[in-house]
Design a protein around this nucleic acid. Structure first.
Lengths: 214, 214
DNA sequence: TTGTATAATGACTGAAAGTCAGTTAATGAC
DNA sequence: GTCATTAACTGACTTTCAGTCATTATACAA
């Protein structure tokens, strides 16, 4: 039955076309200001059709995020540079830098990701989809865990739990990004974009490397 | 003219009563689900009156935040313990801990604060009010700056810019808090609430203390 | 050709923020 | 006490938008 296959393909194409339209519209106006009607119009379908493919406006965003996070994870994998032998601290530095570069290239993804933590979002998305996005957003962390583990093995880092250390790194990078993405706050602090990020990254790496005193 | 004064006082009382009602309703249902109608009902006034005192739903939240941030700043001031002679790293530790305690006691304030960074919020609030909240949210940072400056003077810390170091600390604590406040994420990471926060705090302090190698 | 299943539509509903013409109450002048 | 003026308040109404669903169109199979 080739018909069925073609149908499936066409359905997937339509789905992608709606996603593409949504990306354009959400990026152009921001998620909040964008309307489902305008997504439908851009995709040249009716609103009803949009809801045939996605359960809610937020679900569309979730799937856009999944795409973006996929890219991010690939870039982190590259940054880890599995094949080469690199000191652990240098690996963390590269990972942190790749993380930064991704969100500098796509600041809107970062904003969407943080938006996802709101009740508004969680309520409008099935638990499965929510879980999926969460998992994707944490997947890159595994590279950091591996780097820290390597560092502990090599005696470069001095901390008990690689997972916890990686989580710390992740928390600080997100905190720095959030601060960076806020021109007004940055201005009030009088701290430069990259400067802050680099300082944050270096501070954690130094913190991991330093021997425990007292 | 005593009448005028009484009028002013009554106006302020009404304003406070609306704010109080809003705090209850927002805390009870969350900002997103709460409606201005229910705030009005709780305050025993009409919706029109609410809009006589506040420009938008978001503006009400902004003023609640200002109250909360005032409390926070006072607690940070106490934690700094100006009168006593304390090593700089210990001061930072106390500040970080006070910061944590505040948001553990009032997690909803933290959520409201992060919600404030959304476009939805910025557009619904006058630039003045927005600026005011931002400034309040950064005021506590000054204590951290002072502590780092003291640390640099005493040779306990090794970093060039106190302001930048304090911003780093602030970024990491916020990142850690954000992660902590997310049960699902924490579960996925397998990291405990306080454990993560403490690890993050200690890592930064160690990072500041460590001498620059390389 | 026609019956059936699948896909698409867009007018409609509901919810909630925000508005404003009209009402009520307080104050002060006479 | 009465009336005029001002300030405070009201709630029905408007607007905007997400989400629904009865209806229509299309594609396919017999």
């Amino acid at each position: 039955m080739t018909t069925r296959e073609r149908r499936e393909r066409e359905k997937e194409e339509r789905r992608q076309s709606i996603l593409g339209a949504a990306r354009e519209v959400f990026f152009e106006h921001g998620f909040y200001r964008a309307t489902v009607d305008s997504v439908a119009e851009r995709a040249e379908v009716s609103k009803g059709t949009v809801y045939l493919y996605f359960e809610s406006k937020e679900t569309i965003l979730a799937h856009l995020l999944l795409e973006g996070l996929d890219e991010l994870i690939q870039e982190l994998e590259q940054a880890y540079a599995m094949d080469r032998v690199i000191p652990a601290d240098e690996r963390l530095r590269r990972l942190g830098w790749a993380y930064l570069q991704f969100f500098q290239r796509e600041p809107r993804y970062f904003r969407f990701l943080t938006a996802m933590d709101r009740g508004q979002f969680r309520e409008a998305v099935t638990p499965e989809v929510y879980q999926e996005v969460l998992e994707a957003s944490l997947e890159g962390l595994n590279w950091a865990v591996r780097a820290v583990e390597q560092g502990i093995e090599d005696g470069v880092f001095d901390c008990c739990d690689a997972r916890q250390a990686a989580a710390t790194l992740w928390a600080i990078l997100n905190g720095a990004l959030q601060l960076m993405e806020h021109p007004l706050r940055r201005e009030m602090l009088g701290v430069g974009r990259e400067a802050l990020y680099q300082a944050a990254l270096e501070t954690v790496i130094r913190g991991l490397r330093a021997p425990l005193e007292n």
